[in-house]
Design a protein around this nucleic acid. Structure first.
Lengths: 229, 229
DNA sequence: TCAAAAGTGTTTCTGCTACACCCATGC
DNA sequence: GCATGGGTGTAGCAGAAACACTTTTGA
């Protein structure tokens, strides 16, 4: 038992993990086994330990509940409505991240035997707590951030085609882009490196593969390279 | 005394309040009377009560320590390094706001007889805790937000001249703008309303006064009116 | 009458948008 | 050989940037 002179809210983290499954933006949820919201789907998350940063807590909880390790997450917002948790006062720091869906397709609930699964952002089940609000904000942030930072590459495999890249942007922004202008813009921004490889196996002409050019991007970053779509 | 099954970090808020004093961007600080950091300058802030939202805690603490009331603050970031407070684990949710300096020029420490004062952002005293980090992030956010939202008006008096408006942008961005292009851009964005009043008392030609046109801005917002400077 | 800030248009350049056809491949 | 996606260039237009002089006022 731990005692304090003044009451303290409990502090938790919640993680919004986005992935791209064939042109569908998905989010990783876990199914709760304990009350409150037993059986409901919720964002992975949990209580912050005393000896860890909140960033670390987010990573740890994500790992414990879904098995995903070493995911770089960015802080989103802190939710502190008084009644957001029926157990009492709980303040939650939300994080979000983008992952390569193929690498984590087959998630299953880790410890606590909870289930974990991917859901299309456009077809979500009812969520526990205020997690719908958190998710909505994360989705908004993702859309905006994509505008001026090359974060979208996190969603794609290491090597990808221009089509995949464009479809990713179109999926997140929910609007169509011009093929030629898109290619021009991306190349001009120096986001990608051309590879001497082609994607085979599919029908039709084999498209060239590219990979994200971190060096190229960073060198251009100073000049304020944005992508507005 | 309050007892919990697991240990809990303490939860605080910190407020970064910006004001503009004659082309100098300033921030409102309080002087600490108690340990730790006794005598040091720090951001106004304090512990979150159990029955209030964190937004409310920020407002309340700001009022208690500096007398500023009804300031709309926006959440900035949550700081959770393990050793950021020598008293133990303290997580702090930072907020920031912009105020009309003239209205709050003569702040004095409120309760607890602390002192409160404005400091130029470019000439800060040593700050308590990690408050220099918080302030740096707030400053960064201010610069960015100014780019696509008309928040700068919060820093100016109700009625202002085009010169004042331009100088405000120049001060925050630390770069000079072209007078004619600036006027064109602002008018085109519908940010301001022309008044039939002129600022007198100063030497030289009396400049026309303007005020922020909230209606005009909101009606244009849908169209995605940005100001890139 | 001088010093200092207010106010005003036009031209140039850059970057975004719109748009259509040929190529390679597997079936 | 045909259906499907891969790949390429150009012209027009809109918005940003560069730029200088006249007006007003108080001292």
């Amino acid at each position: 038992m731990y005692t304090y002179e003044y009451p303290r809210p409990a502090l938790t983290v919640d993680c919004v993990i986005f992935g791209l499954d064939e042109n569908v933006l998905k989010v990783l949820l876990i199914q709760r086994l304990k009350a409150p919201f037993e059986g409901s789907w919720a964002l992975p998350g949990g209580f912050v330990d005393m000896r860890e940063t909140i960033d670390h807590a987010a990573q740890r909880e994500l790992q414990e509940e879904t098995g995903l390790e070493n995911i770089y997450m960015e802080q989103l917002y802190t939710f502190g409505d008084v009644d957001r948790d029926p157990r009492g006062r709980v303040v939650s720091v939300a994080y979000y991240a983008l992952v390569k869906f193929e690498d984590y397709k087959k998630v299953r609930g880790a410890t606590d035997a909870m289930d974990a699964a991917w859901f299309a952002v456009s077809e979500l089940p009812p969520l526990a707590f205020d997690h719908d609000k958190i998710l909505a904000l994360a989705h908004q942030r993702l859309k905006n951030k994509l505008r001026y930072q090359p974060i979208g590459f996190e969603l794609l495999p290491e090597k990808f085609t221009f089509s995949q890249l464009q479809t990713m942007y179109e999926t997140i922004w929910q609007k169509e882009l011009d093929k030629r202008n898109f290619r021009k813009k991306i190349l001009q921004l120096g986001f990608v490196m051309e590879l001497e490889e082609y994607q085979t196996g599919h029908q039709h002409r084999a498209p060239r593969l590219y990979k994200f050019d971190k060096e190229g991007y960073l060198s251009r970053e100073a000049k304020g390279a944005d992508f507005e779509g």
